[in-house]
Deep mutational scan, measured.
Amino acid sequence: DLRKKIVDLHKSGSSLGAISKRLKVPRSSVQTIVRKYK
């Protein structure tokens, strides 16, 4: 699940930009998912 991957990467200390590059999703999507998770 993409959300879980993003949250896991964020927990392990990756920046939003790094996560978005790695998973090839827009940075804004990463930000939204991380914000919802918090």
Rank of each mutant, 00 (worst) to 15 (best):
D1S: 14
L2P: 04
L2R: 06
R3N: 08
K4D: 09
K5V: 12
K5Q: 12
K5M: 14
K5F: 10
I6D: 01
I6W: 01
I6Y: 00
I6A: 02
I6E: 01
I6G: 00
V7Y: 09
V7S: 03
V7G: 02
D8Q: 13
D8I: 12
L9K: 00
L9M: 13
L9G: 02
H10V: 09
H10Q: 03
H10R: 04
H10F: 15
H10N: 02
H10T: 04
K11V: 11
K11T: 11
K11N: 11
S12H: 10
S12Q: 13
S12F: 07
S12D: 08
S12L: 13
G13K: 03
G13V: 01
S14G: 06
S14Q: 14
S14T: 11
S14W: 15
S15P: 05
S15N: 05
S15K: 04
S15L: 03
S15T: 08
L16A: 10
L16P: 08
L16R: 03
L16S: 06
L16Y: 11
G17K: 13
G17W: 07
G17H: 14
G17V: 10
G17L: 09
G17I: 11
G17D: 11
A18I: 07
A18Q: 13
A18T: 09
A18L: 07
A18H: 08
I19S: 01
I19T: 01
S20H: 04
K21G: 05
K21M: 06
R22E: 14
R22L: 15
R22I: 15
K24V: 06
K24R: 11
K24H: 12
V25N: 03
V25Q: 05
V25L: 08
V25A: 03
P26M: 04
P26W: 04
P26C: 07
P26Y: 04
R27Q: 06
R27K: 13
R27H: 06
R27G: 04
R27W: 07
S28P: 06
S28Y: 11
S28N: 10
S28A: 10
S28I: 08
S28R: 12
S29L: 15
S29Y: 15
S29G: 07
S29F: 15
S29D: 10
S29M: 15
V30C: 11
V30K: 03
V30W: 00
V30I: 10
V30L: 04
V30E: 02
Q31D: 08
Q31E: 13
Q31K: 14
T32R: 15
T32G: 12
T32F: 08
T32I: 14
I33G: 04
I33D: 03
I33K: 04
V34S: 01
V34E: 01
V34Y: 00
V34A: 03
R35G: 08
R35K: 13
R35Q: 11
R35I: 07
K36V: 06
K36N: 10
Y37A: 10
Y37E: 07
Y37G: 06
Y37M: 10
K38S: 10
K38G: 10
K38M: 13
K38P: 06
K38L: 14
K38N: 09
K38D: 09
